[in-house]
Amino acid sequence: MTSIHRRTVLAATLALAAAGAFAQGKYPEKPVTFVVPFAAGSATDQLARALAQSWTEQTKQAVVVDDKAGASGSIAAQFVAKAPPDGYTVLITTNTTHAANEHLYKKLSYDPVKDFVPVTGLGKGGQVLVVRADAPYHSVADLLARARKEPGKLSFGSGSSSSRVAGEMFKQMSHTEILHVPYKSNPNAITDLLGGQIDLMITDTATGVPQIKAGKLRALGVSTTKRIPLLPDVPTIDEAGVKGYDMGYWFAAYAPANTPAPVVARMRELLVNGVRSAAAKNFFEGTGGEPWTTTPEELAKFQAAEAQKWGKVIRAAGIEAE
């Protein structure tokens, strides 16, 4: 028996076992692992922990939140893709792993479509352009003036594809040259921004807003076409002079391919309830995001459309696959 054949038989056996357990009304009958592609403190990590709290309240089963940062989420995605399809490993992720990476890397360690079963959308949000509070930039115009005066002197960090593409789009649409510095996750980039190793970044609001509220970072613009209630005095990047700029992000849950449909249905039910929970409500209110749930079929269609959209954005920004 070939190794591929053995893996296929094993996957089928595990899927049947999981289906049988569900049929007996036992799923979940042990702790579940939520795998997150970014570091502790990231927006995805914060949402995963809110959902984990609700899951435990509903099922009386513990949830382990496992942050596997690195390679723009590919490490976590590959881990879940190879996990047993039994309902006990769930990827809580974003458009980074399931819409952008296929256009950013010539070879991925996972297939964002074939290796996963969509479960449900979880939420949507925007990003914010930030600099240190003591930086000499008080507006997007100030920042652009410096970038144009000294091309290539400024640097921006990113710890996700959303953040990376947002920065590259900013460069492309403002006709400036700013050096990109990659990080494992946005919180890591924030640390270096605060320490002066980089000059700016466009980060998710969950990571950026607490630092802005604490007076450590200054917000110059938000990435969506509408201002966000958390930062009512901060203009959109479009308003601030980079016309047409718009770059948000989304969260979603996926299970390994071949996870039985009844298990996926129960998983979705628990996660949708989690999105509606008080803990998730606090997350969205505190980060300027919004809840968003789907059926598996709706998420599959949405993901396909988003993959096309991100491909166009990445090509327009002049980003070459690595």
Rank of each mutant, 00 (worst) to 15 (best):
G311I: 14
N101E: 10
A71L: 06
A253V: 09
Q308Y: 06
D238K: 07
E239F: 07
D238G: 05
V63Q: 11
L200K: 06
S160G: 13
L271D: 01
A147I: 10
E150S: 12
G274W: 08
A166C: 04
Q61V: 12
T203R: 08
L122V: 10
W55M: 09
Q211F: 15
G289L: 04
A265F: 10
L217C: 07
V263H: 10
D45V: 08
Q197E: 14
A255F: 06
V181W: 07
N282W: 02
L154T: 15
P235V: 03
K216F: 15
G195N: 08
A206M: 05
E168Y: 01
G152A: 01
T56E: 15
T8M: 15
Q58M: 03
Y110E: 06
A141N: 03
K60A: 12
G195W: 01
T96F: 15
G159Q: 07
E239S: 08
P232V: 00
P296G: 05
F38E: 04
S54A: 09
K107C: 00
F79M: 06
V130I: 08
K301L: 08
I314C: 11
A278V: 10
E239A: 11
T120Y: 02
G123D: 09
L271T: 01
P182M: 10
D45K: 12
S185L: 04
M173R: 13
H103I: 14
F79R: 01
V140L: 01
T191E: 12
A76N: 11
A81Q: 02
S155I: 13
T287D: 06
S3L: 15
P84S: 09
R315S: 12
V80G: 00
L122P: 06
G87M: 01
G288A: 13
V222F: 10
K149N: 14
L129W: 07
F283I: 07
V131Q: 01
A317I: 11
A17P: 00
E322G: 14
A141M: 02
A15V: 02
E168S: 02
A15I: 04
G20Y: 06
E57M: 15
P232C: 00
K213L: 02
V64F: 07
W250G: 01
F79K: 02
P229L: 11
G288L: 14
R315N: 04
A257R: 02
K107P: 04
V35H: 05
R315D: 09
A317W: 14
L271W: 03
S163P: 12
L154N: 12
A189I: 12
I198H: 07
N273H: 12
E322I: 07
V313M: 08
L104P: 08
G241A: 00
G159S: 04
V130F: 11
T259V: 06
S162C: 03
T224D: 15
A133Q: 11
V222R: 09
V140Q: 01
V275A: 05
N101A: 03
R276K: 14
I319N: 02
R7C: 00
V234L: 09
G159L: 03
K149L: 15
A15M: 02
T94S: 13
P262R: 13
E57S: 15
D66T: 14
K184V: 00
I190N: 08
T295Q: 05
I212S: 11
N186F: 13
L16W: 04
H103D: 08
K30F: 04
A77M: 08
T203V: 15
N258G: 03
G208A: 13
R218W: 00
Q127E: 10
Y254M: 03
